[in-house]
Design a protein around this nucleic acid. Structure first.
Lengths: 404, 404
DNA sequence: CTGTTAGCGCATTCAG
DNA sequence: CTGAATGCGCTAACAG
């Protein structure tokens, strides 16, 4: 049906091999021949057969990007950044060397995550980027780690972007012990997306050097540190009863952010820790509804609360809506803060205090790492810094409010 | 290197053909043999070689989804919906029949759009979904139409979601003439995402029946109608000087929305049309910055303006920010309205009046159409209805404000 | 129900 | 520099 290499060869009066060489470009071909072939290609509207090419060459130009929710700007930005690194950089007309970034929406489901990895392995993908927090299920963690290692072993580059290294999940020891270890993370990445090798990395001893040695690279987000700084900011303003609408349970991101919050409390006002449990609700998703419902629940539980932290900015917006509906003013009556610094946060009314994660930069770096265009950080892992963004949604509590 | 079908066959003591049959499942195989093969597959951790399979079967399980900006929730929601239709529906463990939806970010660039189509054609994609407004460039329109028709002719299903049918661009006649023709669109889709065949479609004579006959299906959004109703709402409130921050120039979406706005003016208050030009600024992108800058520019041009319409909700947020920064209250001093009804719009402060596009439903339908799981609407095209959502950001103008 | 036989379209040896 | 030959791993007829 479709036109093949042989057709082009016939029309150009050369052999199929020559056409192949002209098209791949990595082999000397006489100028005259080349242009004759090119014309034939043009005339026949020939398009390479990807599968055949991949089969013969045993390589593919697919790069898979797994995201938990493609409708969430958090992932959209990362995916977009990864993809922006795939092109051959120029307007060079040609499609050569072009990788095809394919983004796969797992919906946060472990099964779909595995399914997509299988699909990508089937396609012999050149690389796979897993983005966003991982599900903390012992069994799934094991299965995932196994599959990723197998992928890596078979030559597919694997990059973890915005999730902790593989070694954290299946390892022995209590989760909290591991968590504490990560707290120290001072590793930092400058967000400039500069050339390979630039930027200040801080290597950290990798929990499972052997495993990561397969070439699995991790770009972790400093969720814990960011959350800690955010809570410190609230404490410094004078808040003592701080509500927390957490993200989905059993997710590394949720645990780390909540952990950072608790850590700040513990360090500054250990006596607040007891009440922290009461002041924490677990929203189901990273959406406005869980923020809205969570805020209402918190209001019921602790009317004296003077500030609310959200799992992320989207949740924070839901919280704001609920508080407003209850007749509370932000930040006069109650402070609210988010996480991630998604684009809309700066424009919210009031502008949202939050923690900025350099999503684009991280995604771009993940893309370069996936293509092998940047040397991996020492130890195969770097932590991306989270920056506190103080805006208008947080202020000192009203006089006496903290005393109920 | 990797384990192949033959390896599995050897281990199971059967022929390669049998293994293939077991794996594809669409052929009778004895129960005992089947389980023996399955065990061998398990033991060897065999994963089908996608390219080889695609080559031999001359089909692929890739479905391409082209979006203008993956970081924009508008496209994220559509892509997510398309992808949600790809699975085999169940937790059936298997990966059989699973299609891989790959979303490709064109960034709104015609060249990248073409490049991705080539890449997808290379991969012999099973289907391609193009989402969002098209660039209105004669030459590109031609090239795009040609390539899409070729794709369709070669068996790849092509679905246009949220953009007008191919026939509109390359056709003869003035753009305005075509535009007017579309104004009448009463075609409507109920947004329930129901079973194939359900829902109320209204066929419209297709401008280019022959071309679309290749099987290119179009799901157009009623941008014009939505914009018209929105402007009518503002006029009914008493607004007469209505600013408009339009989207990127040379895009069908921009033209249609602006067209609907003008149409409403023309029908109700033709005398306002003269000033409309002055009250329109063209933002560069669908982002907060163009809204912010656009609003400032409008304020300079027409201080007496009592309402501002935005290219979409994101732009509207930028507009709100600018107006607030200028000390204007919304909606007391000035009304603002968006378009699309993205998730954050209902939670904005004040809640945004906008036009709701059933993005998820449309995307899901596009996905079903792409898989051939739903019969195309008559004429190969349906128009998705846009619904006016009146919320808190619009109100009657202040007394005397309209008189400058 | 199962094995055998041919290619699918291309990239790569290996000779010229 | 170019052509001929081989096989990538799998599916699809065909026979048994």
């Amino acid at each position: 049906m479709a036109v093949t290499l042989a057709d082009v060869a016939a029309r150009a009066g050369v052999s199929a091999a020559t056409v192949s060489r002209v098209l791949s470009g990595n082999y000397p071909v006489a100028g005259a021949t080349r242009s004759r072939v090119l014309r034939a290609v043009e005339d026949l509207q020939y398009v390479v057969n990807g599968p055949a090419s991949a089969l013969a060459a045993a390589t593919s130009d697919l790069v898979g990007v797994l995201v938990n929710d493609i409708a969430d700007p958090f992932f959209g930005i990362i995916a977009s950044a990864v993809q922006s690194e795939m092109g051959d950089g120029g307007t060079g007309g040609g499609v050569g060397g072009q990788k095809l970034a394919v983004v796969c929406n797992t919906g946060g489901s472990p099964e779909r995550e595995l399914t997509y990895l299988t699909l990508l392995q089937r396609q012999r993908a050149a690389a796979v980027v897993l983005s966003g927090g991982a599900v903390e299920d012992e069994e799934h963690g094991e299965a995932l780690a196994t599959r990723l290692r197998r992928l890596a072993a078979s030559g597919t580059r694997v990059v973890l972007c915005g999730r902790p290294p593989l070694s954290e999940s299946p390892g022995a020891g209590t989760p909290d012990a591991e968590a504490d270890a990560e707290t120290e993370g001072q590793g930092e990445v400058n967000g400039t997306g500069g050339t390979a090798g630039r930027g200040a990395y801080e290597a950290r001893p990798n929990g499972n050097g052997a495993a990561e040695g397969h070439g699995i690279v991790t770009l972790a987000f400093d969720n814990r540190g960011g959350a800690r700084r955010l809570t410190e900011h609230l404490l410094a303003l004078g808040h003592r009863r701080i509500g927390y609408v957490a993200g989905p349970a059993e997710r590394t991101t949720t645990r780390h952010r909540l952990g950072g919050h608790r850590l700040a409390l513990q360090e500054r006002f250990p006596e607040l820790l007891d009440e922290a449990e009461l002041l924490t609700v677990h929203g189901g998703e990273y959406n406005r509804a869980s923020g809205y419902d969570g805020a209402l629940e918190l209001l019921r539980r602790a009317p004296g609360m003077t500030a609310v932290l959200a799992a992320n900015d989207t949740v924070a917006l839901g919280i704001c809506a609920a508080l407003r509906d209850q007749g509370l003013r932000i930040p006069e009556d109650i402070s609210v803060a988010g996480f991630d610094d998604l684009p809309f946060s700066a424009d919210a009314a009031p502008a949202l205090t939050t923690v900025r994660l350099p999503l684009h930069e991280a995604g771009a770096r993940a893309g370069r790492l996936a293509l092998g265009r940047e040397t991996p950080p020492p130890g195969g892992m770097a932590t991306v810094r989270a920056e506190l963004m103080v805006r208008a949604s947080t202020a000192p509590p009203r006089q006496g409010a903290a005393d109920r």
